[in-house]
């Protein structure tokens, strides 16, 4: 589903991501953990086709994000750590805009928006401007927009920040459903307990370099993910 080979991104003299290689298969929830500034967001943005990178290759379903960005982007969705979405639109107009871009048929989008907005309990608010939304509501809207076109690969940067416990629980279920349907999820988190319970595989990044990756059992063994992470970070 996603192949990251030798990804390197340089900012000035700093190698934000240094020769990172990671493969994610269909059906996998892949956690990405690391300290602040380790290179998680840079990696996710590079995969999403937002950030150009200096070396390496990123393939989504065998297609390069560098040479076939449109095809790759149609197959995936990205949710950033801070959902800065168009505050000048109402929630419903924003979702309709996203549906237009991903060419979701008119009847399907009405049904899907209604269903997802009900699940996340923001249906009544959809007529209001996004500028009036709380952080959590914006995050819910970003999640709904990401699920609109049934993406095969979903990239998420700290997706649980700002969500209430019920919405967090719902999102975890939805993530699992995507993977059960043959999709894949690649997300970063600082909440190690969530990663430990939710992820099939996990990668730990430090100063731009991948220091450990594999199945949860391979990475943590008999210890907790937190103790392994802290040990590796020292």
């Amino acid at each position: 589903m996603l192949e990251i080979n030798g990804l390197t991104k340089v900012y000035g003299n700093t190698r934000a991501v240094d020769d990172l290689t990671l493969h994610i298969r269909p059906g996998e929830i892949y956690g990405f953990i690391g300290h602040n500034g380790a290179g998680k967001t840079t990696t996710l943005k590079s995969v999403a086709g937002i950030l150009p990178f200096d070396e390496g290759e990123i393939l989504i379903n065998g297609r390069s994000i560098r040479t076939q960005p449109m095809e790759c982007k149609r197959d995936m969705a990205y949710i950033p750590d801070n959902p800065d979405i168009y505050e000048f639109m109402t929630g419903i107009r924003f979702l309709n805009f996203v549906a237009d871009i991903y060419r979701v048929p008119a009847d399907a989008r009405t049904e899907k928006i209604g269903k997802l907005a009900d699940i996340f309990e923001i249906k009544e608010n959809l007529a209001q401007p996004i500028g009036s939304y709380s952080h959590g509501m914006k995050q819910k809207l970003a999640v709904i927009s990401a699920w609109m076109h049934d993406p095969k690969l979903i990239l998420m940067d700290e997706p649980f920040v700002g969500l209430d416990p019920k919405a967090s629980h719902t999102l975890k279920q939805m993530m699992r459903e995507v993977c059960d349907g043959g999709g894949a999820i690649f997300f970063s988190t600082h909440v190690l307990e969530v990663a430990e319970k939710l992820c099939d595989k996990v990668a730990i990044i430090k100063s731009g370099r991948l220091i450990r990756a594999g199945t949860m059992e391979e990475v943590k063994g008999d210890e907790s993910l937190e103790s392994v992470f802290l040990e590796l970070e020292e």
């Binding site: 168009y86 000048f88 639109m89 109402t90 929630g91 419903i92 107009r93 309709n96 805009f97 549906a99 237009d100 871009i101 060419r103 979701v104 048929p105 008119a106 009847d107 989008r109 009405t110 928006i113 209604g114 907005a117 249906k123 009544e124 608010n125 959809l126 007529a127 209001q128 401007p129 009036s132």
Partner: peptide, 29 residues
């Protein structure tokens, strides 16, 4: 606050959606 009442949504092409986005930004700011 305005309350959303569900109704069928209209689809538009990508170029029309992008133009609509610019229009909303312009008139909404």
């Amino acid at each position: 606050a305005a309350v959303y009442r569900e109704k069928p949504l209209k689809a538009a092409g990508i170029n029309a959606a992008l133009l609509g986005r610019e229009w909303k930004r312009f008139t909404g700011t």
